[in-house]
Nucleic acid binder design. Structure first.
Length: 490
RNA sequence: GGCGCUAUCGUCUAGGGGACUAGGACGGGGCCCUCUCAAGGCCCAAACACGGGUUCGAAUCCCGUUAGCGCUACCA
C-alpha cells in the first residue's frame, strides 16, 4: 500500500461559500484543517468562495468570521476572496484550452437539458457526447469570430485517476465514468472545480482536507492539476455529520449554526472538543480535551471513515465538563455578559467584588450544563426580591404556619451568629433542629426556599455564605412575612 | 440508473489476526454519598449488518449481498 505524501511544511485552508451561517459541519472541517496545521507547524488559511454572486452575501461572510473567531480558529494569512481571482481562473482555463486539454463547446443549456432528459429514460448515465470536440477547426474559428457563446469543457483523458487519501487510502475512478465537465461558463466565469484548483495552486495548498461529499470532485480536480502542470496536494476526505435520524444535518434537526450554540450558552472549548470527536479519536478512552491537548494529539490516523451522528445530549454533557475544567479566570468573561444581559448586575459592580463573584461562579458551575444554567441559578445572589417557585412552596412550605415557625427560629439563630462562617452556621442550625426535635433537613429545605425560592441550590451553608449575612437575613425575614400575611396587619 | 464512499451497543468510539467473556463515554436503569440538585463513585441492560472464503485461529484480511450516504449542473 502506498502512503499518502506528507508535506514538510503543510499549508491547509478552509474554504466556505458565504451562502448562510457557519454550519457545524463546516466548523468541524475548519477545526480539522486547523488542528492539522497547528500540530504540524503548518499554515491554516481562510478562503471565501464567493463566486456564486447570486447566493453570496456579506452578512454570511461576517457570520463565518464571527463563528471562526468565537471558536478560536485563527488563520495565518490574509483572507482570500475567490471572487477577486476571476482573471486568473479564466487565464488558467484558456491555458488548458491552448494546450489542448480543454475545448470549446457551443451547445446551449437548452440543448443539453433536452439531451439529458432523453437519456434519463435510458439506463446510461448522461455524459456529454463531445460533439463540439469534433468540430473542424475552421468552423470553430468561424463561430468564435461570429461571437457565438461557448463554454470551455475539460477533455477527460483515457485511463484511471486515483490517489491515496489520508483517510480512505486508495480511491480510484475509471476516467470513462467522468464527464467532460465545464470549467468556464459562456460568460467567462469559472466553475467551482476550476476555481478551487486554481486558487489552491496559487495559495500553495498542499493538504486538501474537506468533506467526503467532495470525493467525486477529486478526480476532476486532479486532472486539472495535471493539465496545469501543478503538483498534487495530499487529499483527506472527512466523513459527514448527520442528524439523529441518520440524514444529512439540516435545520430540521434544530440548531446547526455555530452561532446558535454560542447563544445557547455553550463554551467554544466544549463545542470544539465535541466536534473533534465526531470523526476523529485520539485512540483509547481519551475524551475531554483542551484545545492545546487536541493539537498535540491530532494525527490523521485517528480520522474516521464513517459518517457521525450529531448528538446534542452528549454536547450538553461535554459542555458541563468544560464548565468545570475551564479556569475561573477564563470562564468569568464568558459568563459575565450573560449575567449583565439578564439584568442581575452591572459589569463594574462585579469587578468591585471579583473574588466573591468568582467563588459564586465556582459554586454554581458544578450543577450547570450551560452558561444559561449558571445565570438562572445566580439570580438569588443578586436580586433584592425573589419569586418563590410554586413547586418549592408546595413541597417545602407545605404547612405555612409550621414553615414560618421554623424560619423564625432560623432567623433568630442566624442573627445571633457573630461569625457567619460555615462550621458555626452549621452547628447552630443543627442544634436548632435538635432542640426542636426535628431532622436537620426539615430546617434546611424550608430555608433553601426562603433564600433561593427554589428546591435546588448548592449546599445550604455555601448559599448562606455566598449570599452574605445581610441579604440572607432579609430573605428569611421576607419569607416569614410572605408565609404569614396576617402578621403585618397587627 | 451509473459511479463512489461507508458498515462495532440507540449515539460517539477503542480495537487493526490469538491479550475479546469485545473496552470507554453519552443517554437509560439501579445503588452509594447526602440538607436539595448536580458533581463524583460503584453496578446493570445494550454492538462486531448478512453470507462466503483465507487461516490452526477473524470484529480485525479478501470477495459478494444488503443497507445507508454522497456525487451525477454553464451550484458550491
Amino acid at each position: 500500500m502506498t502512503e499518502p505524501p506528507i508535506p514538510e511544511a503543510p499549508r491547509l485552508r478552509f474554504a466556505p461559500s458565504p451562502t448562510g451561517y457557519l454550519h457545524v459541519g463546516g466548523a468541524r472541517t475548519a477545526l480539522f484543517n486547523w488542528l492539522y496545521a497547528r500540530h504540524n507547524d503548518g499554515k491554516f488559511l481562510l478562503r471565501i468562495e464567493d463566486t456564486d454572486k447570486a447566493r453570496s452575501t456579506d452578512e454570511s461572510t461576517r457570520a463565518i468570521f464571527e463563528g471562526m473567531e468565537w471558536l478560536g480558529l485563527d488563520w495565518d494569512e490574509e483572507v482570500v476572496y475567490q471572487g477577486a481571482n476571476l482573471e486568473r481562473h479564466r487565464a488558467d482555463a484558456l491555458r488548458m484550452l491552448e494546450a489542448g486539454s480543454a475545448y470549446r463547446c457551443f451547445c446551449t443549456p437548452e440543448e443539453l437539458e433536452e439531451r439529458r432528459r432523453a437519456s434519463a429514460f435510458g439506463k446510461e448515465a448522461f455524459k456529454y457526447d463531445r460533439r463540439c470536440d469534433r468540430l473542424p477547426p475552421e468552423q470553430i474559428q468561424e463561430r468564435v469570430d461570429r461571437g457565438d457563446p461557448f463554454v470551455v469543457r475539460f477533455r477527460i483523458p483515457e485511463g484511471t485517476t486515483e490517489w491515496v487519501d489520508l483517510v480512505h487510502e486508495r480511491i480510484a475512478f475509471p476516467n470513462k465514468d467522468l464527464d467532460d465537465f465545464v470549467i468556464l461558463r459562456s460568460n467567462g466565469t469559472p466553475i467551482y472545480n476550476l476555481a478551487v484548483v486554481s486558487d489552491d495552486i496559487a495559495m500553495g495548498i498542499n493538504v486538501v482536507m474537506r468533506g467526503d461529499d467532495h470525493i467525486s470532485n477529486t478526480p476532476k480536480q486532479i486532472l486539472i492539476y495535471r493539465a496545469l502542470g501543478a503538483e498534487l496536494p495530499t487529499f483527506a476526505h472527512l466523513p459527514m455529520i448527520h442528524g439523529m435520524d441518520g440524514k444529512k444535518l439540516s435545520k430540521r434537526h434544530g440548531a446547526t449554526a455555530v452561532g446558535d450554540y454560542e447563544h445557547q450558552g455553550l463554551l467554544p472549548s466544549a463545542m470544539l472538543n465535541f466536534l473533534a470527536l465526531l470523526g476523529w479519536s485520539p485512540g483509547g478512552d481519551r475524551e475531554i480535551m483542551t484545545m492545546q491537548e487536541m493539537i498535540e494529539l491530532f494525527t490523521p490516523d485517528g480520522l474516521q471513515k464513517k459518517a457521525a451522528i450529531f448528538d446534542p445530549k452528549k454536547l450538553e454533557w461535554m459542555n458541563g465538563q468544560h464548565l468545570s475544567i475551564t479556569p475561573l479566570s477564563e470562564l468569568e468573561p464568558r459568563v459575565t455578559p450573560a449575567i449583565v444581559a439578564a439584568g442581575l448586575a452591572a459589569e463594574a459592580a462585579l469587578a468591585t467584588r471579583r473574588e466573591w463573584y468568582l467563588e459564586l461562579l465556582d459554586l454554581l458551575r458544578v450543577r450547570a450544563r450551560t452558561i444559561d444554567d449558571i445565570v438562572r441559578q445566580a439570580g438569588p445572589y443578586f436580586l433584592d426580591r425573589i419569586e418563590y417557585d410554586p413547586e418549592a412552596v408546595a413541597k417545602n412550605w407545605k404547612d405555612p404556619v409550621e414553615a414560618a415557625e421554623i424560619l423564625k427560629g432560623v432567623l433568630e439563630t442566624l442573627r445571633s451568629d457573630p461569625n457567619w462562617e460555615p462550621a458555626g452556621l452549621e452547628a447552630a442550625l443543627r442544634s436548632l433542629a435538635e432542640s426542636k426535635g426535628i431532622a436537620a433537613g426539615k430546617i434546611f429545605q424550608p430555608l433553601r426556599v426562603a433564600l433561593t425560592g427554589l428546591t435546588v441550590s448548592p449546599g445550604i451553608f455555601e448559599v448562606l455564605i455566598a449570599m452574605g449575612r445581610d441579604l440572607a437575613l432579609k430573605r428569611v425575614a421576607d419569607a416569614i412575612i410572605w408565609l404569614d400575611p396576617e402578621k403585618i396587619r397587627h
